[in-house]
Amino acid sequence: MESETWTITELAERAGAVLADEPAEVNGRVRDLPNERLIRWYTTIGLVDPPLGRRGRVALYGRRHLLQLVAIKRRQAAGRSIAEIQLELAGAPDTALGEIAGLPGPGSEERDDRFWAARPAADIAFRPAVVAEVTAPVTVPALRLAPGVTLVLDGLALTPTDLAAIGAAARPLIDALLDRGLIPHSADDVPGRHP
Rank of each mutant, 00 (worst) to 15 (best):
I174W: 02
E110G: 06
A15V: 05
P141K: 04
R54K: 09
A125D: 15
L182Q: 11
A96Q: 05
Q68H: 02
R31L: 06
D32P: 08
A78T: 01
L89Q: 00
P34V: 01
D32M: 04
A117F: 12
K73W: 00
V190H: 11
I8S: 02
L103Q: 09
R193T: 08
A20S: 14
N27P: 03
I100H: 02
A83K: 03
L11Q: 02
L52Q: 14
T159D: 14
A90E: 15
R55Y: 13
A136G: 02
L11E: 00
L178T: 11
L87N: 05
A169H: 10
A142D: 11
G56E: 13
P50L: 09
R114A: 09
A169I: 06
Q86H: 06
A157G: 07
D21N: 09
V149M: 11
E13S: 09
G155E: 15
H194R: 10
A78Y: 01
A17H: 13
P137M: 03
A90I: 06
G62W: 09
G56N: 10
I82L: 12
G62I: 07
V48F: 03
E133M: 05
V70Q: 02
M1Y: 15
L156D: 15
A92F: 02
D112W: 10
A176V: 11
V58D: 13
S81L: 10
A59E: 15
R75N: 04
K73L: 00
R29Y: 15
E10Q: 14
L182E: 15
L182K: 07
P141T: 03
I166P: 01
N27V: 11
I174C: 13
T150Y: 11
I82G: 00
K73M: 04
P184F: 13
A122S: 12
P137Y: 00
L52M: 13
P137V: 04
G181H: 13
G16I: 00
D179V: 06
F126C: 03
G148W: 04
R75S: 00
R31S: 05
A24D: 14
D94A: 12
A168V: 07
R74E: 04
G192P: 03
V138A: 08
R57L: 07
P104N: 09
P160G: 07
N27C: 12
P191V: 09
L182F: 13
A90M: 10
E25P: 03
D113Q: 08
V26Q: 14
I100W: 00
R80H: 11
R193Q: 11
A165D: 15
H194A: 08
R64K: 09
P128T: 05
P184E: 15
P106E: 14
L67W: 05
